[in-house]
Design a protein around this nucleic acid. Sequence first.
DNA 1: CTGAAAGCGCTTACAG
DNA 2: CTGAAAGCGCTTACAG
Lengths: 350, 350
Amino acid sequence: MVGEAVEKGATLADVAERAGVSPSTVSRTLRGLSTVSPQTRARVEKAARELSFAISRSASSLVTGRTGRVAVLVPNLDSWFLGAALAGLAPALNAAGLDMLVYSVTTAPPPRRNADALLVVSFALSPRERARLDDLGMPLVFVSQHEQGRAGVYVDDVEAARRGTRYLLNLGHRRIAYLEPADPSGFAWSSRARLDGYREALAEAGVDRDDELVRRVADWQGPSLDAAVGRLLSLAEPPTAVFAETDDIAFRLLTVLRGVNVPVPARMSVLGFDGHAMAEPWDLSTLAQPARRLGEAAAELARQVIQDPATHGERHVVLPVELVPRGSTGPAPGARDDGEKGEEDARNRG
Amino acid sequence: MVGEAVEKGATLADVAERAGVSPSTVSRTLRGLSTVSPQTRARVEKAARELSFAISRSASSLVTGRTGRVAVLVPNLDSWFLGAALAGLAPALNAAGLDMLVYSVTTAPPPRRNADALLVVSFALSPRERARLDDLGMPLVFVSQHEQGRAGVYVDDVEAARRGTRYLLNLGHRRIAYLEPADPSGFAWSSRARLDGYREALAEAGVDRDDELVRRVADWQGPSLDAAVGRLLSLAEPPTAVFAETDDIAFRLLTVLRGVNVPVPARMSVLGFDGHAMAEPWDLSTLAQPARRLGEAAAELARQVIQDPATHGERHVVLPVELVPRGSTGPAPGARDDGEKGEEDARNRG
DNA sequence: CTGAAAGCGCTTACAG
DNA sequence: CTGAAAGCGCTTACAG
């Protein structure tokens, strides 16, 4: 025997009886179908209210074949990005009448048939993993990554990194280091793209590629960042700016630079990427991803693919990344402020 | 017609047919009941595998009265604390065979009958709100707060704040300011408790209460923190240490102090509260809450109240808070290091 | 505009 | 150890 302690609540049949109508009519009324007379509707709604009726999704799922739920598969839950994305996602999903089921990748993948769509956030999927997801037999939406032929929402990391690098170039920097995470843990796609953007911008500006300036740093606390800084500062031509692939790396970098008495930005400019909530108190210039809006857009995509599964792969949303200049970046030491007078000055110099 | 584009997957009846047994037997096998012969079990499991069968929770919920889901009601999703708590909660729930449904409080409360238990995180509930939750008719578990007669998991904020304050006292500080958020947004309970702990420790140490040292600061970026610092620094006897009620406030305080050239900890010690992930890179001393373990403990409580709803109110778990000393705290300026020689020195002085 | 009947995919006594 | 039957609480054609 189950449920002696917890009252189970009224059923649709209870409401029907109280309102003096058939269950069919209650169902139609509660789903807002128009084919119900105003008087009947009023009676049913009153009865439902009096009984605090709440529909059982299990029962309706069984017959409609829809669960009213969206599963979200995330690589972690305690990162800034995921928090922001979920903060956008949850209300948007709920507003569309969908519940949000969250699965951390550390546990088993969400079982098929218990959600109407699966949102996959920020994963670098192996072909096998992707095949397994496809086998789940539910519409997929990818968040923060491209997947060929699959609905997805993401930012243009290449373009954003290009813009960030150009910003540093415009400040007069020519030696610009790049710090990437050794383990981009699920963000491999973005990681590649950002490095590409950095290189493209340098190439466009005619700056020679120097792989000595690109360093990998261990993912979280550890000596590796100090070592990277040591390498950079001991180059024949040390950098005057560092582009950190993530704000988290930038924060750690700022700490290290402060510790070794390299003033920022006087001697070293630091640019981050992400738009982490802490970037403002750190006064860190960064390329801000619209994480919340990525979540909102994902909710909208979920709604669409559920409604019309055939359009699966055709839906793509690309959101803009904004450069937010703050105090951690400044003109290159020794570089001239070549604002309007740039051309003239160049002549004078030459 | 629904589901033409997405294949619906095999049903339990399909598995039964393929294995040449009845649906009852498949059900018993898949739920691991022991009353199934080894041969039959093998046949059923093979058939299930071949058909990639996944059970429909909707269907089983309907008959068992259990959904296999736990709803989590959160005040926000993009805070450090909630990320960590969910990171502990989700895997623990999944490990117990439960799915996690997340509702942000900004949207409607979770409908009854669609989850087996409701976890309420960090809310200061009004009596009305609490009554509404009780009316939901599902077992409740409160996370990070006390509710009389309800299962809950939380830390002892009073004791933790007392310990933090004692730590500052032991460093020789006597003028210790306290910064509390103007809007504790859902953490009102903790907020009160922490202030109490601070006051108790001061009283125990015989330090006179001075409400001029207790300041409220606006919740997020804004001038109010600068104003609070201005007030403190212009007192006749300014503080030599500040106890910030949250790490977020402490981070902002460190930024302000740096900006106005007050060296930390030489002129001002700063102690936070929370164990925010950023406390380490900021080198902030703090009282670390075990947020992840709060989530894990909540999952365990959920399991228990589902299994035995009668024991609802009797289950309470109190988790420890640990002081993590770092570089932001040091001896009071002018105070002596009264380690082993404290007593002797006192004599010499006297 | 409304109702009676069938059925969604499972689990659960009840028999055997 | 296994199966036939009933039923969980809804929705959906089908009639009227």
